[in-house]
Design a protein around this nucleic acid. Structure first.
Length: 355
DNA sequence: CAAGCGTGGAC
DNA sequence: TGTCCAAGCTT
């Protein structure tokens, strides 16, 4: 074993967190945890992992559930394609794989939602396949250790990191090596204020010795935020509400929301009145009043959500919408933007208007 | 390959 | 308040 690997495992033995998916080698549990943890912090994903394992103890239970139920359980975690792919793959495992997960990285890669990182994670954690995991933590740690100043999203960087890991991964104990190297990035070699003064690799770390810690890992792309204006219509009659499912290939696909008109800029009441009649093909006269706004900051876009109250005594027919009892909204998965509105609405005595 | 996909915590 | 970004994947 190399001196790097020895130091790493010794650090891991003393410092690692006890996490539920580290107490199992079940491919189903590991797979579930890995999907949940994609681009997600442990503290944020942990309660979701517990919920899913409790609700769906086996891949069979997950496969037999409705997608709506899976999305509802996923609500609030973000990147909802993970939940859709999770459910799709569960059904595939049951139907095409006789309920058994593939046991090689090569075959794991065929599963929807399983990419290079996740395939390596499952193959090594469950089956000790000596294939390195390269996630954000590993990139950061190894790029700093080796002093790689190239952006992390160019192929050359990944190749260098991969070559290093291949030389050091421990045959027969790849699971621990991989867990350790990620945990080191997560706890010691953190994105901001890494704990260099107590680092066992201080002497070896090129970034530390050349004072490059702040600029490694480098990134080439900068995020440009697109602004969007969502006008939601809150339509309630006799304790029922009008909602619809977002089926288009866009943000929050397959989640529910109130009927929506998107505009290129913030819209005023008269514009909203006109657009409402036009878009929803409503003939009768409709009174609309402004309720509130919420802004929702995402990685690549900012949603300006305006909520409008539609005054009506009879039910309005809008295509592609469904009528839901107010006390059953909880059965549907909503985006964070909508849940925020519903929470505030219920807390503000405004529910009196839901006649 | 570049762009698109969420949310909440840290600073 | 705004910016960064975390156990990435798909198209």
């Amino acid at each position: 074993m190399s001196s790097f690997s020895k130091k790493l495992l010794s650090w891991y033995d003393e410092n690692h967190r006890k996490l539920p998916w580290r107490a199992t080698k079940s491919p189903y549990n590991i797979w579930l945890s890995e999907i949940i943890l994609q681009q997600t912090r442990v503290e944020q994903g942990l309660p979701y992992y517990r919920k899913f394992i409790t609700t769906f103890p086996t891949v069979n239970d997950l496969a037999n559930a409705d997608e709506d139920k899976v999305l509802k359980l996923w609500q609030g975690l973000g990147y909802y394609s993970r939940a859709r792919n999770l459910h799709f793959t569960a059904k595939q495992i049951v139907n095409d794989y006789n309920g058994e997960f593939p046991n090689t990285k090569k075959n794991l890669l065929k599963l929807k939602g399983v990419g290079d990182y996740t395939a390596s994670a499952i193959a090594s954690f469950c089956f000790e396949e000596p294939t390195p995991v390269i996630d954000g933590n590993v990139f950061r740690f190894i790029c700093r250790l080796l002093g790689i100043t190239l952006p992390i999203d160019v192929p050359e960087t990944k190749n260098e990191v991969h070559d290093f890991l291949i030389r050091h991964i421990i045959n027969g104990n790849a699971s621990k090596f991989n867990q350790a190297i990620m945990e080191f990035g997560a706890l010691q070699c953190t994105p901001k204020k890494p704990k260099c003064e107590s680092c066992v690799f201080m002497q070896d770390c090129k970034a530390y010795n050349k004072n490059l810690i702040e600029i490694i890992p480098a990134k080439s792309k900068k995020v440009k935020v697109k602004h969007r204006y969502f006008n939601y219509f809150f339509i309630s009659v006799n304790c029922t509400m009008v909602i619809r499912k977002r089926t288009e290939n866009d943000i929050w696909k397959n989640l529910y929301e109130f009927p929506l008109i998107e505009s290129s800029k913030s819209a005023d009441l008269s514009t909203i009145q006109k657009q409402f009649k036009k878009n929803f093909d409503v003939n009768e006269k409709i009174a609309i009043s402004f309720l509130t706004t919420y802004q929702h900051q995402l990685t690549h876009q900012k949603i300006h959500g305006s909520f409008w109250l539609v005054h009506t005594k009879s039910q309005i027919e809008i295509k592609n919408t469904i009528l839901v009892a107010a006390n059953e909204l909880n059965n549907y998965a909503f985006s964070r933007l909508i849940t925020r509105f519903i929470e505030d609405f219920e807390n503000n005595d405004l529910q009196l208007q839901i006649v």
